[in-house]
């Protein structure tokens, strides 16, 4: 196992700080995703302002992490595992930011939603949302533990997200078919389902980057 301590202590501290920033950004993104799903499924309209604020914070993290990475690249010319820590942090922070954007985008769609959505439709969206949240939670856990196995598990489970998206879209189309006036609502809900699927894709990419960080090679199916 590689020694944890750099001869230059401050270098090790900078890498640790970067690692911590990713974890904090990830945990904020996880909360934002939860808030966003609650906003949609329990029509919590007050949550939208809170979500917009969280998204701003996530964007600030992204900028802060970019700066940290650039400083490390310029100051330390990192090699091997240290280079992969920096490069994967750059990619992971981009994906987390996109997940934040997608969750915010979904939450903004709730304002025109009717309050009498069918339970089946809500349940299918909840299932999809919960699966995406679990995936994000697992990938962050894999990042904290630098676990290749954890990352692979998330990559493999992405298929579930795609299947649940398909089921949600079916429910939404069913809702649309009942009454033409549902068109606008249904379109918004389609966005929500698609956003969750795309968030799932970003989570899979984060896991692929964790695999790359640990193994120094790209994940092959």
């Amino acid at each position: 196992m590689t020694n944890d301590t750099h001869i230059v202590k401050s270098y090790g501290e900078e890498l640790q700080f970067l690692n911590d920033s990713i974890i904090q950004m990830g945990s904020l993104t996880e909360s934002l995703l939860t808030d966003s799903m609650n906003a949609i499924t329990i029509l919590d309209k007050d949550a939208v302002d809170r979500i917009v604020q969280s998204d701003k914070k996530i964007n600030e993290y992204r900028a802060k992490i970019d700066t940290q990475i650039m400083t490390i690249l310029v100051k330390r010319a990192p090699m091997a595992i240290d280079l992969r820590v920096a490069i994967s942090a750059l990619r992971i922070s981009q994906d987390l930011e996109r997940i934040g954007d997608l969750a915010k985008g979904s939450a903004k769609k709730i304002v025109p939603l009717p309050e009498d959505l069918s339970q089946a439709l809500l349940d299918s969206l909840k299932r999809l949302g919960n699966t995406v949240k679990n995936q994000l939670n697992k990938t962050l856990d894999a990042y904290i533990k630098k676990s290749k196995e954890g990352a692979i598990e998330v990559i493999k489970l992405d298929e579930n997200v795609n299947e649940l998206t398909y089921l949600s879209i079916k429910e939404i189309l069913n809702f649309l078919s009942k009454d033409n006036k549902n068109l606008e609502f249904a379109t918004n809900l389609l966005f929500v389902a698609k956003n969750l699927e795309r968030a799932g894709d970003h989570i899979r990419r984060i896991s692929e980057n964790i695999y790359y960080l640990v193994e120094g090679d790209y994940y092959q199916k």
Partner: peptide, 15 residues
Amino acid sequence: KNPTNNMTQDYITGR
């Protein structure tokens, strides 16, 4: 980028 030996990795990363 990806040395196979931990000693190589420790040396080139300044450990």
